[in-house]
Design a protein around this nucleic acid. Structure first.
Lengths: 324, 324
DNA sequence: ACGTCTAGCGCTCATCTGAGCACTATAGCG
DNA sequence: CGCTATAGTGCTCAGATGAGCGCTAGACGT
């Protein structure tokens, strides 16, 4: 980034460091410093500039979590987000569950500190959301609403329901679960279930949501539990329609447009429109293969906060930059 | 130093860090940043201030040597020095030889990079000066002048002479040694030696000196090789005269005034006056017991550069502050 | 409900700062 | 010896900045 020009001499370095200390740490003005050192303020300005350029002074950030502030800011402004949290790249290679755990921890911290008793919090079905709830041990007394049915996977039967009730227990607020599968065989079954007392009540809460925590899936194998649960024929049909991303079984094309396919009629989940109405949508999306999907969902304008890892963030930013 | 007020929330921290990154690293103006974040520039200014106060952003210095820039600057301005080099406090407790080695290394680096072929460099007799020369492996071709006779100590027979000739060998310039003891039994012997061909020639060089490297001794046991070599009677007589510090066997009182005692007549060394005429005097003084002596010598106005350790620097600054 | 207190915010104005240009000193070269 | 190239320095002026003040909103006791 900053090519170290020449390794300044010791005494110059010390002088520059002293000046930088006065300026950056003690906050003195360049005019004051110039007087103290018997130099012109222009000289002081130039010394400070070269000190930064050569890396003699470094600015470090002591954040309460391992976050890369530069990437956060780039993502935030590139997509017009309210905020972005980008996990710092780990020193050593990280397994997916490890990464998920750290992403979940960030989300947990964010939710725990921003939630108030007046919030109505929605949770989509996702491993990362589940991992998040495991790491929350205090929350104001507010209702917890399940945003979509349960995706039965080998390792996580009923996990979404568990997630909602667990968080409601922590919060002390009401739980609005959905005791039904996410993907159903046909439209009729779906609509029948949709009118079941408990489920209808939960769907009725969608309009009251103030916060939602969702996970971003990419429309490809192993990057979306919904994708993985469909028949090859339906997957491909949806792919052909241009689907790139999935959030709570709702699809988005590369430009972030809501995509209406046959799938929409046989899933139990919050609609595109209802989700868009939620004031604060926290989206979790991580690992490089998801970069395109993250880009797509962010372009939809639906997300207010993205939580991701440094690799995915960089890839998404590159995609955004190439589009210009 | 800066009391961390309250541990800012995660999202505030990230925002503050992003802002700090833009401001300190990318160098954007607060007005630009304010626009990008949709905040007033005042808010940006306050966020930056609190970020610094709370320690969220830290400014670090990557100096080519382990130096404390804040203390350097304080010493420099407190005593009106041209420059001060203060060794950072080591992580673990350091033995005196270790400390001396690091002080010597600093001096070596400074001398090596500031010396030019037009310089005439004087060296006083001292362990630290000797250690310095051991760590210089390149020097412009300039004369090296011994500033005082040899203080015979158990572990360093003839070391001063060796020091001068070693450095002259490195430099390729002329060596002006003093093959005689520093402290002599009486005035007559001293004056006789003073007129010896080689010695007189060296003394003749004193007026040409452009740089001198000297060590500061405190007028107490183990803190000055000259003190240690005198009889108890003479030590005390000199103490009673108010001697606090010694440089090349020349004495200073607490206010930095040159002190003329009987000792002056039986040592072979550069005079107060000749030393004061040297444009650049680099003084080495380290360890806390020497703080008072360092204070005294700096007050004499003779020193242009001080090289010391953090503990001694702090003590000296405290002495200076209490005097006000 | 009412006043009081406090924290947070943005405004004004005097001061400080940066970009760009012009001047000076030094070194290298003819 | 002078000429030129170059780095280093300080000036001007428009734009950025900080200190201090007053405003507003929410918290709190009465």
């Amino acid at each position: 980034m900053s090519a170290r020009r020449r390794p300044l001499s010791l005494s110059d370095s010390v002088q520059a460091a002293s000046i930088a200390h006065r300026f950056y740490v003690r906050g003195e003005s360049k005019l004051e410093i110039a007087e103290a050192f018997g130099l012109s303020r222009f000289k002081i300005a130039r010394i400070l500039d070269t000190a930064r350029e050569t890396g003699l002074v470094r600015v470090e950030f002591d954040l309460p979590a391992p976050i890369d502030p530069a990437l956060c800011d780039e993502l935030r402004s590139a997509y017009g987000l309210e905020r972005a949290l980008v996990l710092e790249r780990a020193k050593h290679r990280e397994t997916r569950p490890e990464l998920r755990r750290r992403i979940g921890a960030l989300a947990a911290q964010l939710l725990a500190e921003t939630a108030t008793k007046d919030d109505v919090i929605g949770l989509s079905w996702a491993r990362s959301v589940n991992v998040m709830t495991e790491q929350i041990d205090a929350l104001p007394r507010c209702p917890i609403v399940q945003l979509c049915g349960v995706q039965a996977g080998m390792d996580m039967r009923d996990r979404s329901v568990e997630t909602v009730s667990r968080l409601a227990r922590v919060s002390g607020g009401e739980a609005y679960p959905i005791f039904a599968p996410l993907v159903l065989p046909d439209r009729r079954t779906t609509e029948t279930l949709r009118r079941q007392p408990g489920i209808a009540e939960t769907f009725g809460q969608f309009r009251n949501l103030t916060k939602a925590v969702v996970s971003i899936g990419a429309w490809q194998e192993n990057e979306s539990t919904v994708y993985d649960s469909l028949s090859p024929a339906e997957r491909d049909a949806i792919s052909k329609r241009g689907a790139k991303a999935e959030v709570a079984a709702r699809l988005f094309d590369a430009d972030g447009n809501a995509l209406s396919t046959g799938l929409a009629h046989h899933v139990l989940a919050i609609s595109h429109e209802e989700l868009r109405q939620v004031p604060e949508v926290i989206a979790l999306g991580y690992t490089r293969p998801k970069a395109e999907a993250i880009d797509a969902v962010l372009r939809s304008g639906m997300v207010s906060t993205l939580i991701t890892d440094a690799d995915a963030a960089r890839d998404a930013l590159e995609i955004a930059a190439n589009r210009t």
